[in-house]
Design a protein around this nucleic acid. Structure first.
Length: 804
DNA sequence: CCAGGCCGGGG
DNA sequence: GTGTACGGCCTGG
């Protein structure tokens, strides 16, 4: 017998001779790849029954043609379900895929009450039960490559996995057909790691750049990329939107060229799964889609609201993409080969940005892996609720808790219909304000859940009947005083771990790992409340969510009352934050107020100083309405705009609408000059009415998603497609249609014109003013006292401004 | 008001 | 793959 110690990277399983083998992929401390299998782990799930039906269960067999699903063993055990101890049957089956089938059969039995944990993927079950964590060191006793036993080596992390980034450039028609990998070849493949910089392409040109390598054709290029990846043997292959673009594209091209797609030394190939949202997976090589993690997990804490590689790299790395005209790439490919060099550099630079972003997010990703005990591939693609659930599952083990089931369709519908009364919102009076200070409660909801013991089994317990109750619209609640709940302990533990880490950070322990751990714990804690009220959650807890917001409303009222008593003016409050005006008080006065409040607050509750803003605008949802929730723009002391709740302007808006919205906010907050912004808007409207705004700025871009005949309702873009067809242009799904709205009568769709059949004079200024420009800025101006009618009135406007 | 339909990331 | 499917927003009906 030998032992092996290695960082666990990935896990999968395969069926051999009718039995499942777990396959673990790892990297030894000396950097060697290692692959081991474990033959002795059996799939199982739990059931509750009204009688002892072990013998009956052991008879269960389901014949599925080539395979037979069967129960192999049944054990009686005691576990808890929502904090209530009960007897369960642990039902073992022959292979993992037998679990759902046997589960269904068991549910049919008249003695069955319910089944549990039948939806936990086999390898995940393995990791949970063996108590081993990916991206950390594990120690295994092995015999002939088979694992006899395996355990965690405590306090270890694989901090420096080898990352290789990949990025491709493809041939495409600038007129914007949908991604068509069957027709359009890959032109370049870039691979980047600090010690591996390579661009492969299959058109030759003069170059001195040693990174550029020429292949004879696309097939050879793909094979060469595979060889380079195999030889480099990274732990992680990273891409940007590579689940949705690069890797599926490569897969199609490899099939088209009939070349095998092997990415690891031991021969793992690329697997593409999922229909609407594709996933690209390689056994033993962690595919990180940098874009997915950033958009799902990090986006909340970022300023940008577009997640292009350029915008994200700018914010997180302070770097940009190279500026090249990608629309000319295909032309260069066909005619001007010498121009391809700049595209190669562009390609490699994108791969570099992707690599650096991956390195940047890696510490956080690893901390989530450790906290949830889930494979990095999965963590990379999880939403907040999934992260929380994975974290709870990982902790349920030592609490002896069995996971409740995911809701069935009906239950989900029911839950979706159950509105939970939300937080308190003090509606802002729309307007432009100066010198705003923002306070917020530190981790308000997590603190409440922990300190008020909010957990299913603790609700309205018999033992604490008569204790002061929480009155809500849905009735009165109390939570047990004598026993600590499961969910509340988990979150209390989370808060404590984080407090300890924050202490460490304060004392100077500011390494990447510590900071990332603190951040991961914060994200989990902050997502906990949302999870309780999320309809798809296993531990959905409506009363708990209601109680949390009810307590939250009490706490925020306490601050608001105190702020007012102290002579500040409250302009806005939402959930855990209060926005106040300094007026003739100072920032110091505000800080002193906060310290005083904190002395009165119980336990872990604490009010923080969020920031100070020289100017801010609060906007209403409707032009005439009172203040809107969560819709404002602030400018901080360094001149950076903080914009919340303004809809992001998309492709199917005209350029002019996007421009105007941005300009208006800038003028108002930087120059604090509403009149100037209004003047600007008037000038734009006037130019539109004189049809002076260039035609290209009013073009609307929309993609045709299907065949024209498949449309049930005829939107403007469908009309544009029809017109193109009439003109003999081949129209196919995926095309970006460009059209303008011309003068005329009837519905919008009746006024659709193609760009090349329109002249500068043709576009309908009133449409653009009413449906594009004004919707984008109407609310902003409404709060400054301008109604949209004021801009629409085609008169001299100067006198209206004077009383603002 | 609901349902149908598009966007996003990538090239 | 212990299979099933994003979330937000706008427009037409």
């Amino acid at each position: 017998m030998a032992t092996a110690q290695f960082y666990l990277l990935d896990a999968t399983y395969k069926i051999i001779n009718g039995k499942a083998q777990v396959i673990l992929y790892g990297r030894t401390e000396k950097g060697k790849r290692i692959i081991l299998s474990d033959k002795d782990f059996e799939p199982y799930f739990y059931a509750r029954t009204t009688a002892d039906i072990k013998d009956l269960l052991l008879q269960l067999k389901i014949d599925r043609g080539t395979t037979i699903y069967a129960v192999t063993k049944v054990e009686e055990i005691t576990r808890k379900l929502l904090e209530k101890e009960q007897t369960f049957l642990k039902i073992f089956v022959n292979i993992p895929s037998a679990v759902p089938a046997i589960k269904d059969a068991v549910k049919e039995l008249k003695e069955a009450i319910d089944c549990y944990e039948y939806d936990i993927p086999f390898t995940r079950r393995y990791l949970l039960d063996k108590n081993i964590t990916p991206m950390t060191l594990v120690k295994a006793d092995i015999e002939d490559g088979n694992i006899i036993s395996i355990e965690q080596v405590p306090n270890t992390t694989f901090t420096a996995p080898k990352i290789l980034a990949i990025d491709i450039e493809t041939y495409y028609d600038p007129l914007g057909k949908r991604m068509m990998p069957e027709q359009n070849p890959i032109l370049m493949i870039a691979l980047y790691a600090p010690d591996m910089k390579k661009v492969l392409t299959w058109r030759r040109f003069e170059t001195n750049d040693a990174c550029i390598e020429f292949c004879n054709n696309e097939a050879e290029m793909i094979l060469r990329a595979c060889t380079l990846i195999k030889e480099y043997s990274p732990d992680i292959i990273a891409g940007y939107f590579s689940d949705g673009f690069d890797l599926p594209y490569i897969k199609v091209r490899a099939e088209k060229n009939k070349v095998p797609l092997v990415f690891t030394p031991e021969g793992s190939t690329l697997r593409i799964s999922g229909k609407t949202i594709t996933l690209a997976e390689i056994n033993g090589l962690i595919h990180v889609d940098v874009f997915k993690f950033i958009r799902k997990v990090i986006s909340r804490s970022m300023k940008t609201d577009v997640f292009t590689l350029d915008a994200v790299a700018a914010e997180l790395l302070g770097d940009h993409k190279h500026e090249v005209d990608l629309d000319k790439l295909s032309e260069a490919w066909n005619k001007n080969h010498q121009e391809l060099e700049q595209y190669c550099h562009y390609n490699l630079h994108d791969a570099r940005l992707t690599h650096d972003l991956c390195a940047k997010i890696l510490p956080l990703l690893i901390e989530f892996v450790k906290l949830t005990g889930t494979l990095m591939f999965d963590v990379n693609r999880m939403s907040f609720s999934q992260l929380v659930e994975a974290y709870i599952m990982n902790n349920a083990q030592w609490c002896q808790e069995i996971a409740p089931n995911k809701p069935a369709y009906n239950e989900k519908q029911k839950r979706m219909g159950q509105r939970i009364q939300g937080a308190f919102v003090y509606e802002p009076k729309p307007g432009l304000y100066t010198n705003i200070v923002v306070f917020d409660y530190r981790s308000l909801y997590p603190s409440i859940i922990a300190s008020h013991n909010i957990s299913q089994g603790m609700l309205n317990c018999a033992c604490c009947k008569g204790k002061p109750t929480l009155h809500t619209d849905r009735g009165d609640f109390w939570f047990c005083d004598r026993q600590k709940g499961f969910l509340s302990s988990i979150i209390e533990n989370l808060i404590q771990i984080r407090a300890k880490i924050k202490q460490d950070i304060k004392q100077g322990k500011k390494d990447q790992m510590t900071l990332a751990r603190s951040e991961a714990l914060k994200v989990l804690a902050n997502s906990f409340y949302g999870y309780l009220g999320f309809y798809g959650a296993k531990w959905y807890f409506k009363e708990g969510a209601e109680a949390t917001t009810a307590f939250g409303r009490q706490y925020i009222h306490k601050v608001i009352d105190a702020v007012i008593q102290d002579g500040f003016i409250v302009i806005y409050s939402d959930t855990d934050s209060v926005f106040i005006l300094l007026e003739n008080k100072t920032k110091n006065d505000a800080l002193e107020f906060m310290h005083a409040i904190n002395k009165q607050l119980p336990g872990v509750m604490e009010l923080d100083f969020e920031g100070m803003y020289p100017a801010g605008i609060f906007v209403s949802t409707k032009a005439t309405d009172v203040g809107a929730k969560k819709k404002y723009a602030l400018i901080d002391e360094t001149g950076v705009l903080k914009i919340k709740g303004f809809e992001t302007v998309r492709r199917n808006w005209s350029f002019i609408a996007k421009d105007v919205q941005k300009q208006v906010l800038e003028i108002i907050l930087k120059g604090k000059n509403p009149a100037k912004a209004a003047e600007y808007l008037r000038s734009i409207i006037a130019e539109l009415r004189k049809n002076e705004i260039p035609l290209e700025k009013v073009v609307i871009h929309t993609q045709l998603q299907r065949e024209i005949s498949d449309y049930k309702s005829i939107g403007p873009h469908v009309v544009a497609a029809q017109r193109m067809q009439q003109k003999g242009i081949v129209v196919e799904p995926g095309m970006i249609l460009k059209f303008v709205i011309a003068k005329g009568t009837g519905k919008i769709r009746d006024k659709v014109r193609l760009v090349d059949e329109s002249k500068q004079q043709d576009y309908d200024a009133e449409y653009y003013i009413n449906n594009q420009i004004l919707p984008a800025v109407e609310r902003i101006f409404a709060v400054l006292g301008y109604s949209k009618e004021q801009f629409l009135a085609d008169k001299t406007q100067s006198n209206i401004d004077s009383f603002i």
